[in-house]
Amino acid sequence: MFPDLTRDDVFRIETRRLWLRWPTAKDRDAILKLAGDRAVAEMLARVPHPLPAPVVDAFLLQARAENATGAGLTLALARRSAPASLIGVVAIHPGSDGTPELGYWLGQPYWGAGLMREAVRALCNAFFAYAGGTDLASSARIVNPASRRVLEACGFVHTGTGTKPFPARGADLPVDLFHLDRARWRACAAEAVLTEAA
């Protein structure tokens, strides 16, 4: 799904405030603390609470393996002022229906500053511009309006509601479903350029 460009662990995307880089073993403690926070974990399908260290170790190994093969792309978020300190994760993986799916989380201390919107926009740009993506799906728990706002701000269109498996929550849960295609991404990217130039 992703080209050779992304398959080296020196690959990174820089935004105004963030570095998006491959996750490393040094991110383990930050993931345990930030993703293990109940307020974060409860919105995620595969992150149990409490979060055991072996689950994080397996996640890191899997993320790096998928990045290396191009099967998906999982990137750690870090502030440019502290590039070694993970504050969240953003990823695109093959979806169950064949459409790639975007997922993400951000540590609670960093909520409300627009950082996830910045990260999602950057990864979407990489997906459509460098990986030749045509369609991207995402979803957010209905009880998570902040995640919905991130997707809408990045051009995703709400396509309805449904249920998705949340194995870490032990049930299928209701979600808002979203979609972004290449044409809408282009239009949103052009609009962002015009806004920044104004």
Results as ranks from 00 to 15, higher is better:
residue 2 F to N: 00
residue 3 P to D: 05
residue 3 P to T: 04
residue 3 P to M: 05
residue 5 L to A: 07
residue 5 L to K: 00
residue 7 R to Q: 09
residue 7 R to S: 06
residue 9 D to A: 07
residue 9 D to P: 10
residue 10 V to D: 15
residue 10 V to P: 12
residue 12 R to F: 10
residue 14 E to I: 02
residue 17 R to D: 13
residue 19 W to S: 03
residue 20 L to R: 11
residue 23 P to C: 13
residue 24 T to D: 06
residue 24 T to I: 11
residue 28 R to L: 15
residue 30 A to L: 00
residue 30 A to S: 03
residue 31 I to F: 04
residue 31 I to T: 00
residue 34 L to V: 03
residue 35 A to G: 05
residue 38 R to I: 10
residue 38 R to V: 08
residue 39 A to T: 11
residue 39 A to H: 12
residue 39 A to M: 10
residue 40 V to Y: 15
residue 46 R to Y: 07
residue 46 R to I: 09
residue 48 P to D: 08
residue 48 P to T: 08
residue 48 P to F: 06
residue 49 H to S: 09
residue 52 P to D: 02
residue 53 A to G: 07
residue 54 P to K: 03
residue 56 V to H: 04
residue 57 D to E: 14
residue 58 A to E: 01
residue 59 F to W: 11
residue 60 L to G: 03
residue 60 L to I: 13
residue 60 L to F: 07
residue 62 Q to R: 15
residue 63 A to Q: 15
residue 63 A to R: 15
residue 64 R to M: 11
residue 65 A to I: 10
residue 65 A to W: 09
residue 65 A to R: 15
residue 66 E to W: 15
residue 67 N to G: 14
residue 69 T to R: 10
residue 72 G to H: 05
residue 74 T to I: 07
residue 75 L to H: 07
residue 76 A to M: 07
residue 77 L to P: 13
residue 79 R to K: 15
residue 79 R to Q: 15
residue 81 S to M: 13
residue 81 S to E: 13
residue 82 A to F: 09
residue 83 P to A: 04
residue 84 A to D: 09
residue 88 G to H: 04
residue 91 A to K: 13
residue 93 H to E: 11
residue 93 H to S: 14
residue 93 H to L: 12
residue 95 G to W: 11
residue 96 S to F: 12
residue 97 D to C: 05
residue 98 G to P: 01
residue 98 G to L: 00
residue 99 T to W: 05
residue 100 P to M: 01
residue 101 E to T: 02
residue 103 G to C: 01
residue 103 G to M: 00
residue 104 Y to F: 10
residue 105 W to C: 05
residue 106 L to T: 06
residue 107 G to A: 13
residue 109 P to E: 08
residue 110 Y to P: 08
residue 110 Y to S: 14
residue 115 L to M: 07
residue 117 R to V: 11
residue 117 R to D: 10
residue 118 E to I: 04
residue 122 A to S: 08
residue 124 C to S: 13
residue 126 A to R: 13
residue 127 F to L: 11
residue 128 F to G: 02
residue 130 Y to H: 13
residue 131 A to L: 02
residue 136 L to W: 11
residue 140 A to E: 07
residue 142 I to V: 03
residue 143 V to H: 06
residue 144 N to C: 14
residue 145 P to L: 04
residue 149 R to N: 06
residue 150 V to D: 05
residue 151 L to V: 03
residue 152 E to C: 04
residue 156 F to C: 00
residue 159 T to W: 01
residue 162 G to N: 10
residue 166 F to Q: 12
residue 167 P to F: 02
residue 170 G to V: 05
residue 170 G to K: 04
residue 175 V to G: 14
residue 176 D to I: 08
residue 177 L to Q: 08
residue 184 R to G: 01
residue 187 A to W: 01
residue 188 C to R: 07
residue 190 A to M: 12
residue 190 A to G: 14
residue 190 A to N: 11
residue 192 A to C: 07
residue 193 V to W: 06
residue 193 V to R: 08
residue 193 V to P: 03
residue 195 T to P: 06
residue 196 E to Y: 04
residue 198 A to F: 04
